[in-house]
């Protein structure tokens, strides 16, 4: 689980071009959107692709993302349960 979380952080930093950030800057339960990391709806779509491409999880409704992408913690939990690769 810890590895998955770290992996996710790295992927997010790369996919979203968070140039000045490192894995240590993102805590597991920090809100990814709004007041937390400050990601927006375009980033959410990037995260959906990470789920699809790297973990074989297809989200069809962008609204589902809201719960899953709350934090690294919620993302990792969801991926661990649903991943097909």
């Amino acid at each position: 689980m810890e590895d998955l979380k770290k992996e996710l952080k790295l992927k997010i930093i790369e996919a979203l071009n968070l140039e000045d950030m490192s894995v240590e800057d993102i805590s597991d339960d920090e809100m990814l959107f709004e007041e937390g990391l400050g990601l927006d709806s375009i980033d959410a779509l990037e995260l959906i692709i990470i789920l699809d491409k790297d973990y074989g999880i297809k989200l069809t409704d962008s609204k589902d993302g809201k719960k899953i992408f709350r934090s690294i913690e919620t993302m990792a939990t969801y991926i661990a349960e649903h991943r097909s690769k």
Binding site: A15, I42, L45, E46, I49, D52, K53
Partner: peptide, 8 residues
Amino acid sequence: NEEYLTPT
């Protein structure tokens, strides 16, 4: 081949 495209 049109897969895994992101919107940015």
